[in-house]
Design a protein around this nucleic acid. Structure first.
Lengths: 111, 111
DNA sequence: AAAATAGTTAAGTGGTCACTTCACCATTCG
DNA sequence: CGAATGGTGAAGTGACCACTTAACTATTTT
């Protein structure tokens, strides 16, 4: 369910925004409240909540509310899925290059 | 120069679109012309060229024109940079979890 | 209880994005 | 040569996006 294109779409779309990547960056150093996430960002709290919603919809971040403070954390499984997509494509390309190299080496021997 | 936030921004933004990811996917299986990239996509050639421009601006894809056909290929270095950004964040989180685990194990011993 | 804190929600706005069509250039084929 | 192929550039359009303000709820502090 993490590899379906729709979820992948949401994840890359979520990562496309610099503010959201900054939030992920912050969360990679530990859980944080919404206001803590907002603090370094030059925008309203409201905007931050909207970004947070995007991140949660993508599965990259989860949160729970205790009292009046919502604590957010990174969801490493989702991060891994995005990572995996890129890795697969890069590896496919590099394997292809290797085969091509072998082929060229062989035909050179035969010349 | 591959890790500066502006370039990272362009890369994730480029990967955010499903059509562009499909193009990257196709290119991971080998170089292709613009029309070959366009063939499986339900949109005009012109639209594909515009997507291609985004991909090239992000550094994920490069191309060269020979005669009247432009041949495109994937740029694995850029892919690796995006991969690396995600990986760093995920690892930071996981290392943190490990330390937390150690801490909990220790304090348990002391109880 | 009053005031401060933390977050939520809705509505609006300006800008960007993905796409289209159409006119066009350059190269190759018959 | 003329016609077909492969690609490019500009202008327009509707949808979406990031953000704002403002009104509001729920919780905690004093």
């Amino acid at each position: 369910m993490l590899h379906d294109p729709a979820q992948l779409d949401l994840m890359f779309q979520a990562l496309a925004d610099p503010a959201r990547r900054q939030m992920v960056e912050r969360l990679s150093r530990g859980p944080a409240s919404v206001s803590q996430l907002a603090e370094p960002l030059a925008m309203s709290l409201s905007a931050v909540v909207q970004h947070l919603n995007v991140l949660e919809a993508s599965g990259l971040v989860s949160s729970e509310k205790l009292g009046r403070v919502r604590t957010c954390r990174i969801e490493p499984k989702a991060l891994r899925a995005a990572e995996h997509w890129i890795n697969e494509r890069r590896l496919a390309w590099e394997r292809r290059l290797d085969r091509l190299g072998d082929f060229l080496a062989e035909t050179k021997d035969e010349s």
